[in-house]
Design a protein around this nucleic acid. Structure first.
Length: 585
DNA sequence: CTCCCTTTGAAGTCA
DNA sequence: TGACTTCAAAGGGAG
């Protein structure tokens, strides 16, 4: 994260955080009800977080690095597997691993061991498992622990275990917390790994360049010879388990976050994630589909024939004619926000009774904006690396490839759209899951993008304060808009690279009555969402039980973010807020 | 069962 | 080049 201008350019902090909130009144009251109830929990969270943070800070990178490079053989694998299985069992039994309402850290996020990009990877909440782990416990060979009892012979992955080894030892947030070039710097190669990796195909030694690789794709296909699937670190090495893991089993939704950084960084540094051009068919040399690869069949038949031929020689040949149809679906790499969502969703969900993703996402969106630049930068960096790795894994892949894969999504109700358009779809209009006063998307949202989302993060972050665009953004009062029709996302949301012209125009028209009152208020460094000014004619066709929301949900997670907030306190100040209603069209 | 909703960001398309 | 569209995750809600 060279771009992170450490400390500098604080003025670029998320200005959207500087929302002048007004008493929410009723909702506030209701929320308060939960406050007391969760206060204790917060304390616990706090302590836990602190502890975890300490652990992560002190032991994450170092400890993991110091960790003996056990090279599990079949035997050790079995042992470790059992060990981990036991851990899992306990967790499932609600034993020591029973996680609190609030998944404090450290916890092992093992929602889905399957490919993060696997469409079927999504699990029902019940299936998602967040293991709260003790560090010692974490020190288990990854694949082993992840393996299901039904897992094929250990020997199969014996040589791959190392890859997975530390994958999940790390603090889930470690990646984000400790994410830095350090991890990727071509430092001391793993003792068990030669600095050079022999290309399985050519046998030519290659010098790894970890710095380029994303933790999410720690393993290089080229290294597959000894390593395995990039996700091997977190998922069963055998293709079978990978897709046949029962919903309740170990599955990893998002390796990167769950297994995280330290691990990812660890892996990348240890395994020299040197990337090689993946096979044309998008399968790793191991035959295991990359996480980003989703076979259409997978969705329906998770355990089926997705398995690579190499893994299952007996696998029945796919009819050539179907080749086209069965073309694996390579998912897009997750962007920074998606990564953030992946990680924080569980927390948000844990903090409230809300289950609707739409509502959760709104909260997450707010929190995203509340993140400090550095924090966001971490995610941007992660996303960047992932994209990089993704591109390396799938050189020929294009986002366009996925176009049309899904059902045609609803079209935004553009201002100019004909009235009929609305009726065409029974889509709910102007749905606001959060009180509109809590909505502050747009311009503000763009701010975050400015951080690093740009292809050249370094540029954006290197001189955060410098960019004219940034300044304009900063100048941009936070606009709180109502959602007159459909999605306004594209209307106001500035792409990361946006020049800000759009926002400027819209912001200039900040005229809503409520906005005036809000804007007039002195800037309050208040966590977003803790309260809000009443917006103009909030449209809430599908109200969310806000009573279930805890203030902390809308504000940066206190424990976790506290540190960040503390250090970046300055970031959250001085941005005048003005509420802007979207001009009627 | 399928799509919608919601969020941000990246990347694609189109004018 | 800018504006717009699509998709990525997620899961409850709705048809």
């Amino acid at each position: 994260m060279p771009q992170l201008n450490g400390g500098g350019g604080d003025d670029l902090g998320a200005n959207d955080e500087m929302i002048s909130f007004k008493d929410e009144g009723e909702q506030e009251e209701k929320i308060s009800e939960n406050v007391s109830a969760e206060r204790d929990l917060d304390d616990v969270k706090s302590s836990l977080v602190n502890e975890s943070e300490n652990n992560s800070s002190s032991s994450d990178s170092e400890q993991t690095e110091r960790r003996p490079q056990t090279r599990p053989d079949s035997e050790s694998y079995e042992k470790t597997r059992d060990y981990f299985s036991e851990a899992l069992r306990r967790q499932q039994d609600g034993g020591i691993f029973k996680s609190p309402h609030y998944p404090s850290y450290p916890f092992l996020m093992i929602p889905d061991l399957t490919n993060p990009y696997l469409s079927n990877g999504s699990l029902s909440p019940s299936a998602r498992t967040y293991l709260q782990m003790k560090w010692p416990l974490l020190d288990v060979p990854g694949s082993a622990g992840l393996k299901d009892s039904r897992s094929p012979t250990p020997g199969h992955l014996s040589n791959k275990v190392p890859v997975v080894q530390h994958a999940h030892h790390v603090h889930p947030l470690t990646p984000l917390i400790t994410y830095s070039n350090e991890h990727f710097s071509p430092g001391t190669p793993p003792s068990h790994l030669s600095p050079e990796i022999l290309d399985p195909k050519t046998g030519i030694p290659r010098t790894p360049h970890p710095s380029e690789l994303s933790p999410y794709y720690p393993l290089s296909p080229g290294a597959v010879g000894s390593i395995a699937h990039p996700l091997g670190w977190l998922m069963p090495q055998q293709g079978q388990p990978m897709y046949s893991i029962p919903p309740g089993g170990f599955r990893h939704p998002y390796p990167a976050l769950a297994m995280n950084a330290s691990m990812s960084s660890l892996v990348s540094s240890r395994f020299s994630p040197h990337m090689v051009t993946p096979p044309p068919h998008s399968l790793h040399q191991t035959g295991i589909p990359h996480p980003a690869i989703v076979s259409p069949a997978i969705k329906q038949e998770p355990s089926g024939d997705n398995i690579s031929p190499s893994m299952h020689a007996r696998k029945s040949p796919v009819p050539p004619k179907k080749e086209e149809d069965k073309k694996p679906h390579i998912k897009k790499p997750l962007n920074a926000f998606m990564l953030y969502m992946k990680e924080m969703r569980a927390k948000v969900v844990a903090e409230c009774t809300l289950k609707e993703s739409a509502a959760i996402n709104q909260i997450l969106g707010r929190r995203w904006h509340s993140l400090s630049r550095e924090e966001q930068a971490k995610y941007y960096e992660l996303a960047r690396k992932e994209r990089q790795l993704h591109s390396q894994l799938y050189p020929g892949w294009s986002a366009r490839d996925n176009y049309g894969k899904r059902k045609k999504r609803k079209r935004d109700n553009k201002p100019d759209s004909k009235p009929e358009d609305f009726s065409i779809r029974s889509k709910k209009q102007c749905v606001q899951y959060l009180p509109s006063e809590k909505r502050c998307d747009s311009p503000a949202s763009s701010h975050g993008s400015m951080l690093d989302s740009p292809a050249t993060p370094s540029a954006a972050l290197a001189s955060p304060a410098a960019p004219a665009a940034t300044h304009s953004e900063q100048a941009q009062p936070l606009s709180l808009t109502t959602k007159p029709e459909g999605r306004m996302h594209h209307h106001f949301s500035l792409p990361g690279k946006a020049s800000g012209s759009t926002s400027s125009s819209s912001s200039s028209s900040s005229t809503s009555s409520s906005s005036s009152s809000s804007s007039s208020q002195p800037t309050i460094s208040l966590p977003i969402g803790t309260s809000g000014s009443q917006p103009t004619t909030p449209i809430l066709t599908r109200p969310i039980p806000f009573t279930s929301l805890h203030p902390s949900m809308l504000s940066p997670p206190s424990p976790f973010h506290q540190a960040a907030f503390h250090s970046h306190h300055a970031l959250f100040q001085s941005q005048p807020l003005s509420l802007v209603t979207k001009p009627t069209e």
